[in-house]
């Protein structure tokens, strides 16, 4: 029971209070770049969640099985980014060959994910928080889900923005950032929700 409660706290923290995009500023480029349409934001969110979960599954044994015994923990950035890059390529090839429908809906986003700081960020975060394998996976899943929710909400906000008459200097990036600021403000409201539910 204690374990399940702990996992729920990690999951909800990742989705709501420590949302990757809106409070940790990871993965801003896809958040602002690919959130113009609802469909593509769902696709991107799902692809990121999938890669995040797999990346944390792969990097955990590499860190604790290879880097720690050899006392080269400082190599973690290099090792992780290589593993993520290789893994993304692998997933792309496997999906293309064996699951063409899934490749068609998720595959296009995969090359964008290699250099997405959210994926490297979540693997490094799992290390700094000293999560075990299960906790790492749950944390990555929560982070990915939070990313997807933020993208979907923001896609809705932006579809409204397109029909507005915006002052000339604010058109383009500035108004997008200001809209993101307001969405982020809404997420501040979740602060304390997790503690409230679990009586932490």
């Amino acid at each position: 029971m204690e374990i399940a409660r702990n996992l729920m706290i990690i999951l909800l923290t990742g989705i709501l209070t420590e949302n990757f995009v809106l409070s940790k500023f990871l993965g801003i480029c896809p958040f602002l770049g690919v959130s113009k349409k609802l469909d593509s934001s769902i696709g991107m969110g799902a692809a990121v969640t999938f890669v995040m979960v797999c990346a944390s599954l792969v990097t955990y044994p590499i860190y604790y099985g290879i880097l720690v015994p050899l006392h080269i923990e400082y190599m973690n950035t290099i090792a992780f980014i290589l593993v993520i890059a290789v893994f993304v390529q692998l997933v792309e090839m496997v999906l293309k060959k064996y699951m063409p429908p899934l490749y068609k809906s998720l595959g296009v986003y995969l090359p964008l994910i290699t250099t997405n700081c959210a994926v490297l960020g979540v693997t490094l975060l799992n290390l700094t928080k000293e999560y075990d394998l299960l906790e790492s996976v749950i944390n990555s899943f929560g982070a990915g889900l939070g990313f997807m929710i933020a993208m979907v909400i923001f896609a809705g906000v932006r579809s409204r923005l397109e029909r507005c008459d915006i002052p000339k200097a604010l058109r383009g990036a500035p108004i997008t950032l200001m809209a993101a600021s307001i969405v982020s403000l809404a997420f501040i409201g979740f602060g304390g929700v997790v503690d409230g539910i679990f009586g932490g």
Binding site: K37, D39, S40, G43, V108, L110
Partner: peptide, 12 residues
């Protein structure tokens, strides 16, 4: 990332 961006943006 060859063409991935445009595909991702236009896919929807």
């Amino acid at each position: 990332c060859p063409g991935a961006c445009e595909k991702a943006e236009n896919n929807g």
